[in-house]
């Protein structure tokens, strides 16, 4: 089921290596700490999934990697290493050489992500022409080639169409083809299937996986759907209120969820055979706290079954459950598991 054992290379140099990423956004009420101390790395042909509720900072994290944050956002990091180079302080001009060329991004809503006034062909070709100094003819050939790659049967005709003439699934395929024009090493996919029909969702995910193998891309997949994580990802980082609360291989995190939030999320999934008709489907009570101003202590404490006074006073660092599986809580995995059984027994 999971891909953790599918043999993605762990030893090679990571494509993207983010360390200590913080993003602060100025809002009228003060400074919003949208992302705090986020670190991860993704290797070639590997998929990392960023998971969390709306507003947990997963999209901001991905925009930070592309350096497409709004002007009101301030980014700091120990480093953001892309393909061995620290791009944290790259200028806008340096970044335009990377974007669309060596890193690509696809977005949630394919209905609004393509420019309505240009033909599909123009929108694909311009990427190749810009980054590869290619002629219009070469770019057109490349575009046809990629449309075939993303499973489009009649590329020549599709290239002359406008976005409004295509369905949502087709448009998302166009977006993928557009971002693969220059064979990027990293593809960031921000909820690429959320806006699509369920049947189309599966097709798009399968497509992403086969393209990943073919082009040996690193993928950062943003989603709130744990089913998608299980199907697609090698590694997963669970985010809550701007911080990673648990991360590790998909197998480790799903087999041994340690942070109370991760457990809560997994319990929200109905499972055939395990969730019987009379059982209540899990949910996590409460709401995400405001991230404006100084945040001390654990952000999850007001929704957590294990919370004690000490949780409000001390900031918690990520600590290991075991090698390459970390969580962010003051209590040990055993304490969390024990207390949990206690609750279950009541």
């Amino acid at each position: 089921m999971t891909r953790a054992d599918s043999g993605a290379s762990q030893t090679s140099e990571p494509v993207i290596d983010v360390s200590g990423l913080n993003v602060d956004i100025s809002v009228p009420a003060g400074i919003l700490h949208a992302v705090s101390d986020v670190s991860f790395s993704v290797g070639p042909a590997e998929t990392l999934s960023l998971v969390g509720e709306s507003g947990c900072g997963k999209t901001i994290t991905s925009l930070a990697m592309m350096r497409l944050l709004p002007r009101s956002a301030k980014l700091t990091a120990r480093h953001i290493r892309f393909d061995g180079m620290d791009i944290t302080n790259y200028t806008e001009k340096d970044m335009t050489r990377l974007r669309g060329n060596r890193m690509g991004m696809i977005f949630q809503d394919p209905m609004t992500s393509l420019n309505p006034v240009y033909r599909i062909g123009d929108q694909l070709e311009e990427v190749y022409m810009r980054h590869r100094n290619a002629s219009r003819k070469e770019a057109r050939e490349r575009a046809s080639f990629l449309l075939e790659k993303v499973g489009i049967i009649n590329p020549a005709q599709r290239l002359t169409q406008f976005p409004h003439q295509l369905s949502g699934g087709l448009r998302q395929r166009m977006m993928i083809a557009m971002m693969l024009m220059c064979e990027p090493k990293l593809l960031i996919a921000d909820e690429p299937t959320t806006a699509l029909d369920v049947t189309v969702q599966v097709q798009i995910l399968q497509l992403l996986r086969s393209l990943q193998k073919e082009f040996s891309m690193a993928i950062v997949l943003i989603t709130h759907n744990l089913g998608v994580v299980a199907r697609m990802a090698d590694k997963v980082a669970i985010m809550y209120a701007g911080k990673v609360v648990e991360q590790g291989s998909v197998q480790d995190v799903f087999d041994r969820p340690t942070h109370p939030y991760t457990r809560g999320l997994l319990e929200c999934i109905p499972r055939h055979g395990l969730t019987a008709g009379h059982d209540k489907l899990g949910s996590i009570p409460g709401i995400v706290p405001s991230l404006v101003g100084k945040v001390t202590g654990c952000s999850f404490r007001n929704r957590c079954l294990h919370a004690e006074e000490v949780c409000a006073m001390r900031d918690v660092a990520l600590r290991p459950v075991k090698d390459n599986h970390d969580y962010r809580c003051l209590f040990s995995p055993e304490e969390l598991a024990g207390a949990r059984e206690g609750v279950a027994a009541q």
Binding site: M66, G100, T112, S113, L114, H131, M179
Partner: peptide, 17 residues
């Protein structure tokens, strides 16, 4: 602030374009 302009920027196009 539209999505397709964000796409254009994600494609690495120049500010002029």
């Amino acid at each position: 602030s539209s999505d397709y302009v964000r796409t254009a920027r994600a494609k690495g196009l120049s500010q002029t374009s």
